[in-house]
């Protein structure tokens, strides 16, 4: 369960403050996958980052016991470290101890193969993006965060990655921030709609989509 209590978030901008959220109260139940629906600039990525613990509320608290991933495909690799070292870095931060097992799993889910010891600076962006997902799956999080649509890349192993992800979804949940409900339909069964400075939880995905369409039509 993720509890958002009295959340307010504002940024300093050149002319005063930009208020993104004001006094938001939400409870996200465990085991339900959630789409955060909002148009561009509405604060959906901010809400995702707040839930993910990489952005911080101006006022209020976000409480959770769940083990959360980083927003997938936003992992910052240290380019002077090898793939193995980068994996160990996140594994260590996440409190995992069975490094060998994790590395093996990343190998089966990605095309790294025997390039495990090569520095990440020798990889292209197209190789690193899906690697991100492979590492996150190997680390076995409770919640997977996505900023935008879920992207399995266009490498030859993308079906393997998709199958592994689908399997993981039986035990984990996703939270994704999207501006197009169609991108989230496949995986999400509930939604949060951002409306002005508030965010509203809908236990049925389609109800949220309706609300999202109405508030978008008004604008």
């Amino acid at each position: 369960m993720i509890r958002i209590e009295r959340l307010s978030k504002s940024y300093d901008i050149k002319k005063g403050r930009a208020i993104i959220f004001k006094d938001v109260n939400l409870t996200i139940p465990t085991g339900r996958s959630i789409a955060i629906l909002g148009s561009g600039g509405s604060g959906k990525t901010t809400l995702l980052n707040l839930i993910g613990g990489i952005d911080f509320p101006t006022i209020g608290k976000i409480k959770t016991e769940l083990d959360m991933s980083w927003p997938i495909s936003h992992l910052r690799y240290e380019k002077s470290m090898s793939v193995r070292q980068n994996i160990r870095f996140v594994a260590r931060l996440s409190g995992r101890e069975n490094f060998d097992h994790i590395e093996e799993e990343v190998k089966t889910l990605s095309l790294v193969g025997d390039r495990m010891s090569a520095r990440t600076q020798h990889f292209t962006v197209n190789e690193l993006r899906p690697l991100d997902m492979a590492i996150a799956l190997a680390l076995n999080f409770d919640v997977y965060l996505f900023d935008g649509a879920i992207n399995f890349g266009n490498q030859s192993n993308k079906e393997i990655l998709r199958a592994a992800f689908d399997k993981k979804m039986k035990t984990s949940q996703v939270i994704m921030a999207v501006d197009n409900p169609a991108q989230a339909k496949e995986y999400c069964d509930a939604s949060i709609v951002i409306k002005g400075n508030d965010a509203i939880y809908f236990d049925v995905f389609d109800e949220g989509v309706e609300e999202f369409k109405i508030s978008n039509a008004v604008n």
Partner: peptide, 19 residues
């Protein structure tokens, strides 16, 4: 947790600086 984080940052830093 704190020790894990410190150790992880330490490893990353020495690589960034000296590798």
């Amino acid at each position: 947790l704190q020790l894990d984080v410190i150790f992880a940052i330490f490893i990353r830093e020495i690589h960034r600086k000296f590798s």
